[in-house]
């Protein structure tokens, strides 16, 4: 008999228990960052070690896993994490959003609406939305405790004063359950409305920063804004040049060294489905 070289889903059972305890508290206090003892993973920090540890702690042998990186199933980070779980957990994988029970993502939320049967796991580089405004963890902890979020509005105001609009286009801060301001990870602000009242459970793992946080299903997530400068999402003048979609988030792809470029869906699964339906 072939003795597997790793425990199921790579992590040892004590690590999983520690992460599972953190996950339950994260879900119970929506938007609050729970510290956890992130482990060294067999991939560099910044490559999704937090998301990988969360996925490993919730994965069952019956799950179907989808991994995306900037919306795409076929980029390096997505392929290597998917292969990691095939190797260490033997789970089924898919590129079709509807078939997945767990979707691990870097920097996008799929265009296909998620369901109650799905869990979305985000890879997070900087979990603390106030970090670039206040570098001290002791202070940001206090600011969250006191709901002292004025400085975040000042940052958005400075955007308006300088650029005439809120220029923050990703990592756009939002208020969860009317209590905690949180960092939705570097998803484009285009995806922020999908966080709100989402039927799927959303889990966030930051490996280097050792934080886990969560948004339960059907939870209010309000992107911060001003009455006279309301939150808005970007629109493109032209549709996707592959599938013609006007509703999806488009990436600019440079096609040659003579200034050639095209705009295409960042969600490859959505693009393929739109193209085959057309």
């Amino acid at each position: 008999m072939n003795v597997p070289a790793y425990n199921f889903a790579y992590l040892n059972e004590q690590t999983k228990r520690m992460i599972r305890r953190a996950l339950l508290k994260a879900v119970a206090i929506p938007g609050y960052q729970v510290p956890f003892a992130a482990r060294e993973m067999p991939m560099p920090l910044g490559w999704g070690t937090g998301g990988v540890q969360v996925t490993a702690a919730i994965l069952t042998p019956e799950d179907t896993l989808k991994v995306i990186d900037q919306g795409a199933d076929d980029t390096t980070n997505a392929v290597s994490i998917r292969r990691f779980f095939v190797k260490t957990a033997g789970v089924k994988t898919t590129e079709v959003t509807e078939e997945a029970t767990i979707i691990q993502t870097r920097h996008r939320i799929p265009e296909t609406p998620l369901t109650e049967k799905q869990t979305l796991v985000f890879q997070v580089p900087i979990p603390e939305p106030l970090r670039f405004l206040e570098p001290r963890e002791t202070e940001t902890r206090k600011m969250h405790a006191l709901e002292e979020y004025g400085v975040m509005h000042v940052k958005l105001y400075e955007d308006i004063a300088r650029f005439g609009e809120i220029a923050t286009s990703y990592d756009y801060p939002a208020l969860v359950n009317d209590r905690y301001v949180f960092d939705p990870s570097p998803i484009p602000k285009f995806d922020n409305p999908k966080l709100d009242n989402c039927p799927a459970l959303q889990l966030f793992g930051a490996g280097r920063e050792k934080r886990i946080y969560a948004i339960p299903p059907y939870t209010s997530v309000k992107s911060l804004d001003f009455e006279d400068y309301p939150f808005s999402i970007p629109r493109w003048e032209k549709p996707c040049e592959i599938c013609g979609s006007r509703a999806s988030y488009l990436d600019e792809i440079v096609t040659d060294d003579k200034g050639g470029r095209m705009f295409v869906c960042s969600d490859t699964d959505h693009c393929r489905k739109q193209k085959s339906a057309a």
Binding site: A9, E13, K16, R20, L24, A57, P61, P216
Partner: peptide
């Protein structure tokens, strides 16, 4: 089989806490 059984037991607990 602790790894599989605990994973299968944890998911309903997590889903219950989320719902």
């Amino acid at each position: 089989t602790p790894a599989h059984d605990s994973a299968r037991s944890f998911r309903p607990i997590l889903d219950a806490m989320a719902n």
